[in-house]
Amino acid sequence: MKITIWSDFVCPFCYIGESHLEEALKKFEHADEVEIEYKSFLLSPESQYTPGKNYYQAFADEKGVPLEQAKAMMGQVLDMAKQSSVSINYDIAKFTNTVDAHHVFQYAKAEGKGNEFFKRFYDAHFNEGEVLSDNETIVRLAKEVGLDEVKVRNIIETKEYSNELTHDLAESRQVGVQGVPFFVFDNKYALSGARPAEYFTQVLEKVWEEKESK
């Protein structure tokens, strides 16, 4: 079974939803036969990191919503994260774009390290206060997952792998992605959002049963 996930490193419900999927997979009898592939999505491609501006204010300014509304939204995220035993720290998180990080992710994917890369960048954003648009940060984190430093620097400079990123984004539009995370099971069933682990369990079993009955 193949599960394709459209996501961005800075998407909180992707981070939470995928933890629910992982929880479901731990109980799924055929988890060893499940392959997960991440695809790029850009939630805020135009955003620039502003030093000294906290996450709430940066988000409010970028999205044009009142500060209190931004805080309320983050509050919902934090409540859900707490219920899911997922750690998110908006007091140190940095609001910025992830375009170059996704270029390098596409390279990581080509090297068979895409999933590892995604998880490392989630943690860096949500728990370590890393600026994911900063070149040196991207290089350092990419090295941690075993990518070649010279190659990573070259990708950031030349925008190599931009075609792969464009492809993922075009594909998301074609399949009608309205929100991320967006999960596709065996190119047949799709769902979006941070659904509960029990829901993922039901989907996994349904898709597996259909697959086996063919």
Binding site: V180, P181, F182, K188, Y189, L191
Partner: peptide, 20 residues
């Protein structure tokens, strides 16, 4: 290959996701 997706709904009144 993935043009004919079946979108699975939810029993909940709302989904938590990030609007694209």
């Amino acid at each position: 290959m993935i043009q004919d997706l079946t979108i699975l709904g939810s029993d909940d009144s709302a989904d938590f996701f990030c609007d694209v």
